[in-house]
């Protein structure tokens, strides 16, 4: 049976967020198994730049739900709108971002269906959705089947690459039902540290206790800046010591990341840190202790003084990128 999949998009300040195309790509995998269709749903206060590109990335329909309160995230209104629109869909796909993680459980509870969070693989099998999701911070993988319809899932950023898969992208609208505003998002403040989040960045450069003091994180920031698209991460030890915001922490009580490149600087590699970054595609470790456990997980290691190695690496990366 051809199934219809609803893909919930994210926008900020009237522009589509990058992860939205990944959500469409994940929804496409569920739809294509059964000759089904993908409807991308954009919730916003007005026009959203790039929404019309979603057809190119696999959306059969691009539906817009517009409401003056949807300039920022409006949890009650978003949940009410998606809940009301859910009829007839075999699955609803969210991004496992701060917004998706907040919104998806609300929608699932409204619809009285199960929700599988942060999935890294999904498929439609025998009329049900099966998922793979990391548990114990990636130390184990759980395979599960969602038997209620619609199946609600959120997909981990950087896991389902956006692919060009031209579809009609036919425009439509979704009605926003009356909703009770219980929570109001008043504003988004700029963060005190890194603007780019470790869970979404293509490159993550993380620092640990080997940096000796907080001011030396400058070396990590400079290396991240050299990559242009890198986020700054941190080990639990330095977050607990107050050197970095907890939002930067990679590991079991922090974030689990899957970037294309992860560079661990002065991090020994405690089991709870390794759990948070082992799904990175390529891992580089720089540490003075050749027996540090991080070298067992890293693809490439350099043994030596990070205070000499990192500035040189920054310089080489700058040169390599400048030459492109």
């Amino acid at each position: 049976m051809a199934s219809r999949i609803l893909a919930v998009m994210e926008q900020r300040d009237g522009a589509l967020r990058k992860v939205s195309r990944e959500v469409v790509a994940a929804a496409r995998r569920l739809a294509d198994g059964s000759g089904g269709t993908v409807d991308a749903l954009v919730l916003a206060a007005g026009p959203v730049a790039d929404a019309d590109s979603l057809g190119r990335f696999g959306a059969d329909h691009v539906l817009v739900a517009t409401h003056p309160d949807f300039r920022l995230y409006q949890p009650d209104g978003f949940a009410a709108t998606i809940g009301a629109a859910a009829t007839g869909y075999a699955a609803i796909v969210f991004a496992a971002t701060s917004t998706g993680r907040d919104l998806a459980p609300r929608v699932a509870a409204r619809l009285k269906v199960a929700y599988a969070s942060d999935v890294t693989a999904l498929a439609a099998e025998d009329g049900a959705v099966t998922v793979t999701r990391p548990v114990y911070a990636g130390k184990a993988l759980q395979r599960a089947r969602l038997t209620a319809e619609p199946a609600v899932v959120s997909v981990r950023p950087n896991t389902f690459p956006a692919v060009e898969s031209p579809k009609a992208g036919e425009a439509g609208t979704v009605e926003v039902p009356a909703f009770a505003t219980r929570v109001t998002v008043r504003e988004i403040k700029a963060p005190t540290q890194a603007a780019l989040d470790v869970s979404e960045a293509a490159v993550v450069v993380s620092g640990g206790r080997g940096l000796r003091e907080p001011a030396n994180f400058r070396l990590i920031e400079e290396l991240a800046a050299a990559f242009g698209n890198a986020a700054v991460g941190a080990s639990r030890a330095v977050v607990d010591a107050g050197w970095r915001d907890h939002g930067a922490q990679v590991g079991q009580t922090g974030k689990t990341v899957s970037p294309g490149l992860y560079i661990a600087v002065g991090i020994s590699g405690a089991i709870q840190h390794l759990a948070g970054m082992r799904t990175a595609k390529t891992i580089v470790a720089i540490n003075k202790d050749k027996d540090a456990p991080i070298f067992k997980t890293a693809d490439y290691g350099i043994v030596g003084d990070l205070f000499e190695i990192v500035p040189r690496l920054t310089e080489e990366v700058r040169r390599a990128r400048g030459a492109q």
Partner: peptide
């Protein structure tokens, strides 16, 4: 306040 990607969201309720 809750951390979101690239910012801090400020929300209120009763």
């Amino acid at each position: 306040e809750r951390e979101i990607e690239g910012g801090i969201e400020v929300a209120t309720c009763s």
